[in-house]
Each structure stands twice: as structure tokens, then as C-alpha cells.
Design a protein around this nucleic acid. Structure first.
Lengths: 363, 363
DNA sequence: CGGAAGAGAGCAAACGCTTACCTTGTGGAT
DNA sequence: ATCCACAAGGTAAGCGTTTGCTCTCTTCCG
């Protein structure tokens, strides 16, 4: 009524219509608007309708920043991955985001590119943005910082990663089962010499994969000469280099198990440039079952690790740490199982069977 | 000193040390702390030193929410992509994020999965978070909303997408040059029949790519029979399907140009399952030059579109819209050039030359 | 020596919301 | 009729900052 306007009485961008505009329009106090928006039951139905109508009319969107400021909850989750360009991560990110959004959270994603300085600045930025929790899917977060955060009970979950500290929420992948299936699959086909292209062995998860491999081999009484364990880097480039090193040796295995699909794809690439054919001369098996795995040539036999399960566990772990009355509040460990998916990059070793039943290109 | 504590005098999580704690510790007012942090020159050097020391000691991190609330700037950028799992996007996202972070922004990423409802809710969430601007790299944002945002001068930029509305910031890819190079490359090798596997033709950018192809062919006087224009979906699955439809026809082309690399990879896949070899029987050329392109078998000849340039243009366009005194404030269009990268998936058509010099697998 | 100017620091009002607390009005029990 | 309990809405404090304004010293000029 009075000519003196509040700051946003005129038409502004959607975000800048404030609760006051709604209150004025509906002829109620801002408290009532707030209560209506938050579904608090003490608001009279008739009034609530008026408020919603006013909200509609002025195009009000509650300002999340202000909400966060007063409630202390930003409804933001941080997600730290190694490299977003590694095809494994987008799938994970996607699932994580879907689940988070379904719970009313938004996600701030950052990739570390394995750079400690970058990681630290990322972590700082996330904290500064007041994220309610952080899921870490990479290594190299400074232990000191982690310890400090854990002590202050900041919700933190490590997914297939994480330092060796007590009292940390972890989502752990059970490599044993999937890798055992892969090894047994190859052994059942008749392979006796199986090489392993590992990831960077400074990290825990590649190490766990390697150990699972050695264990599965030992269970079958199969020997693994050290020269058939080659370290890669979980990238295509690393897979190429590792395979080339393997090829340079006198005794070739008839099968190669790779620590992840990217390595396997690199291996396929390296083999393509030689006279060895996959799978007839050499079988290649991956790990992760990224989307791409079914589209490489030949389609890759690999071990599936469910992104959805992984993401779901991470989100649940965070919610458990964030939301006061959450049932799983004290749970510290989540386990994800793995499982073999047979495609066309693995078959009998050459000569071990009378005929090659699986028709492949050099028929 | 006094036993009555302010809210955060004890050891809490890093984010919750407030400016007041610093002020108390340094024995100054919060205004001075604020000015020190923001580098305002009226603060005495000696005092500033004391403030920084206090900040260090209490582990203070300014609360971005509060800052945003009072300044009206969230320093958040929204980024909308179609699907984060499509390998083209992570590379773009990565670059975008790097550039944004370098300018002090954080990025909220969302994927639409081509779902209008999802797109709308995403947009609403972004506005609610008070993002300072949004870069849109997908189609299907409701025109009405866009119009409204543009009218209210909300910083918005469309990257290789966008509705046909006036006065919109656009980053446009110049398909002409790259596709012409690709066509001329194939023609120079001796190809006369070149098929085209397009993207979904309901969208602008696939349409632009197709038109560029037709134009380049026409320039050389090469005919393109309609049955050699097959519509795909810019995915591997779509590439496979499109290639299969092409293969089902009586007259095969000697070369196939694809609207994006994913389609080309699908095409390679489909061809792998036939007796046609790439590149000897049929040459395949992609578009985008995603990282993966150099690792498929055979490494893909493709047209490079620089992610970095694209991302840089998008960030600059947004900054131009956000930051008051930005020089490019009125610029509405940014252009990105494209360029052919020759790898091993293209060669002479079979029989067109006496000997095949480029050593390929069936040598 | 008085006073103006300017540097440097503090006070307090926003920013848009949530929520504890207070006020008002209603109905039922006494 | 009086009182109390309770429902329903309003008032205002406060979340952690930034920033316009004010206050207090210096310093320097006349």
C-alpha cells in the first residue's frame, strides 16, 4: 500500500521473490508462510490454501542459503572422485546424485586428479560450503584432516578407499567372490597360466584386488610367477603399457585378468597391435563392468560391481551420520558384493579343445 | 575467559568456527576480521597480521552461505548436461569445473537424461540454490521458463543447444569446417559413396552436423542417396542399430561418417560382427574426439571439438552475464572451431589403389 | 593552541529464513 | 458467568556475514 517498497516488490528473477512478498500477498505473517511451506500442521487449511495460491502467483522459491544458514543444514553433499573422466565414475556419480536428490540433497562433485594439493583445496571448499557430509571415492586425502573430521563427528564415508583409521564409515567391496568366480571361470575353460594386470599398488583397493586374485589362484593350486604380475595404473594407457611389458616376456599366459575394465581395454588395444587374437590366443577379463565393457571388441568378460549398490550404500552411510534419528547411526561398514559377467573376451585356451565352438573373427 | 561460552568456543568441526571466534581471539571486532579476510586496504598491517594468526589458530573458514546471503552472490554455477554417463560430457564437465573453480565458483551439475520433468525440477533446484548462472548443454528446457529467465536477465548460456529465442547467449560450434575436412579427407582417399549416421534429428546440433555433411558432399559433387542417411541416437546402441540398418541394404558405401564418436564406436561394433573389416572394407569417421576415440580398435579418425574451448567460452559467457563490469557484457555469441584428426579407421577404399600401404591387420 | 581532515576501527542493520515464545480467541468444564 | 486449556497465528531473535555509518584518535594547518 505505502509507496515505500520492500526490496523485491517488483518483478525480479524467480529466486529473488522472498517470503515477505508471499506473506503480503496472502495477508499473513511470514511465519505462517514458512510453516505452510514446511508442512507444519498447525496451519489452518483455509489459510494454507491462500498461502499456496500466493506462492504460485508470485513465483516464490524458498532461498536455500537462508534456510541452510538458520537450520545449520545445507542439504548439500560432497562427492570426491579421482577423475570424472574415468568412465567408471560418471556411472557412480549418476546413481549417487539420483539417490541424493531423492532425499532432498544436492551434490557438489569434485575430482582430485590424484593431486594432493587439489584434494586439499577441494575438501576445504566443500567444508566452506557447509556440506552436510562427504563421500570420498579416492585415495590421498590427508590423514590428519580425516582424523580431525572424524573426531568432530563430521559425516564422512569412504567408498572403496580410505585410510587405516579407527571408527570410520566405510563402504567396502567384497572382491573375493567376484574375482574367485573369474579365476574359476578361466580355470574351468582350461587355462593354467593366468597373468594379472594390477592397478597402482600403492592404493588399497588395487591391492585388495590383487590379493583376491592370488588367493583364488592358490585355492586352485595354480602358480603365478612374479613376472606375470604386472603393475598398471587403472587407465587405458596403463593397460597398454602393462600388456606390452607382459608381451615382451618369453612365456605368455593364455589368459589375463585385469584389475579394472580400463586396464583390460588397454590390454585389448595392445593385443590388437600384435598377432595375438582375443579371445582365441589369449583371454582377457576385466573388473567393474562399466557400461563400455559390453561395447568394446570383443565384448569384455568382466566382474560386475554394482554402481547402484555402491552409491546407495554411500548415501545411506552419510544419511546415517547426518540425520539425527537415523536407525543405522552406529553402523560403520557396508559391504558390496561382486559377480562375474561372461561375455566374449574369454574362451578355451588355443588347442585345449578339439574345435573352437565360439565363432570368432579368424574362423 | 568467562565461563559463558558463545556457541562455538569449543572444538567443533572446521566449518563451524565463526568470525566471532576469530574476532575474540584477535581482540578485534568482527568487522575488522571481515575486512581483513576480504583484503580491504583500510586495515592496519599489524592488526591484519594478528587477525590472520587468529584465523590460523582457530581454523576459521568463512561460511559461504552467509556470505552469499548478504552479498546476493552464491558463487555457484549450474551446469546442465544430457547424460553424465556419455563420455563426451565428463571431459566437458571437468574443464568447466576447472575454469569455474579458478574463478572462485563452485559447480552444481545435473543431468536431465532427456526427461523434461527431470529437467524442470533440476532447473528449479538450481534457482533455489541461488546459482549465479546456468550453462545448459542439453535440449528440452522449457521455452517459457527460458524466456522468463532471459527477460529477467538471469545469466544463462546455451552450449551447442538452445531454443530459438532472441537475445540469448550461445556458444556455437562451427561444424562446417571440421566436417568439410572429414569429407574431403575421405574423398581424397578415393571414396565416392559416403554414408552418414546422424544423431536424433529432432535436436538442433545433430541437425547442424547433418547439414554440414550434406553441404560438404554437395560441394564435391557427391550424391548422397537417402537410404545412406541413417538416423541414430548419439549413443553406442544407436550406432549399432544404425549401422545394422545400413548393412541390410544392397549397396554399401565405402565410408561412413558418424555424427558423434559414440555412434562411430557403435558402428565399429556392428561391423566387427560382420565380415567387413575397418578400415579396409569400410572407413569409419567419428565426431567429437572424445578421449576414448584413440583407444578403440582401430583408433578412430574423428573431428575434434575442443572441450576446453567450449568450456572456456561457457564460463566466460556466464561471467560476462554475472560480473558487473565484465568487458564482454553484451556479447551474445561465441564460436568454437572444429578440426579433423586422422587415425586408423579410415583408409583407401578397397581396390582403389595398387597396394595398401597403410599396414593393417589383414596384411 | 584550536580545529579540520583523514585514517582506522567498531556498531549495527541488513540478507531470507526458522522457530521459541507470546498473544488472542475459542470452547468446555465448573 | 468464570476460568483454563488449547489451537492458531503473530512477533522477534538469531543464523554468519558484509558494509554504511559513526566514533575516536592522530596529524597537520592556520
Amino acid at each position: 500500500m505505502s509507496p515505500a517498497r520492500t526490496n523485491s516488490s517488483d518483478r525480479r528473477r524467480p529466486g529473488s521473490v522472498s517470503i515477505r512478498d508471499v506473506a503480503k500477498r496472502a495477508g499473513v505473517s511470514i511465519a505462517t508462510v514458512s510453516r505452510t511451506v514446511n508442512g507444519i500442521s498447525t496451519v489452518n487449511e483455509e489459510l494454507a490454501r491462500r498461502v499456496w495460491k500466493a506462492i504460485e502467483e508470485v513465483g516464490y522459491l524458498p532461498n536455500t542459503q537462508a534456510r541452510a544458514l538458520v537450520s545449520g543444514r545445507s542439504k548439500l553433499l560432497g562427492l570426491i572422485v579421482s577423475e570424472i573422466t574415468n568412465p567408471f565414475f560418471p556411472e557412480l556419480v549418476q546413481e549417487f546424485e539420483n539417490l541424493a536428490v531423492a532425499q532432498g540433497y544436492e551434490v557438489l562433485i569434485g575430482s582430485t586428479n590424484y593431486d594432493p594439493a587439489r584434494t586439499e583445496s577441494l575438501m576445504r571448499r566443500l567444508l566452506q560450503r557447509n556440506v552436510d557430509g562427504v563421500a570420498v571415492m579416492t585415495f590421498g586425502v590427508e590423514e590428519e584432516l580425516v582424523k580431525q573430521l572424524v573426531e568432530s563427528e563430521f559425516p564422512l564415508v569412504f567408498v572403496d578407499a580410505g585410510p587405516d583409521l579407527p571408527n570410520i564409515r566405510l563402504v567396502q567391496v567384497d572382491y573375493g567372490e567376484g574375482i574367485r568366480q573369474a579365476v574359476q571361470h578361466l580355470a574351468a575353460l582350461g587355462h593354467r597360466t593366468i597373468a594379472f594386470l594390477s592397478g597402482p599398488l600403492k592404493q588399497r583397493s588395487p591391492l585388495a584386488r590383487r590379493d583376491a586374485f592370488l588367493k583364488a589362484m592358490a585355492e586352485l593350486g595354480l602358480r603365478v610367477p612374479p613376472e606375470q604380475m604386472v603393475e598398471g595404473s587403472h587407465t587405458m594407457e596403463g593397460g597398454i603399457a602393462a600388456m606390452e611389458r607382459l608381451l615382451a616376456q618369453p612365456d605368455l599366459p593364455t589368459a589375463v585378468l585385469c584389475s579394472n575394465d580400463m586396464t583390460a581395454i588397454g590390454a585389448l588395444h595392445a593385443l590388437y597391435r600384435t598377432t595375438h587374437r582375443v579371445p582365441d590366443d589369449i583371454s582377457v577379463v576385466g573388473f567393474d563392468d562399466i557400461h563400455l565393457a559390453q561395447f568394446v571388441l570383443p565384448p569384455l568378460t568382466t566382474v560386475q560391481m554394482s554402481c547402484r549398490d555402491l552409491a546407495a550404500a554411500a548415501v545411506e552411510a552419510l544419511r546415517a551420520g547426518i540425520e539425527p534419528g537415523h536407525p543405522r547411526h552406529d553402523k560403520k561398514e557396508w559391504r558390496i558384493s561382486t559377480q562375474l559377467v561372461v561375455r566374449q573376451s574369454s574362451t578355451f585356451p588355443r588347442g585345449s579343445l578339439p574345435a573352437q565352438v565360439s565363432g570368432t573373427r579368424n574362423g
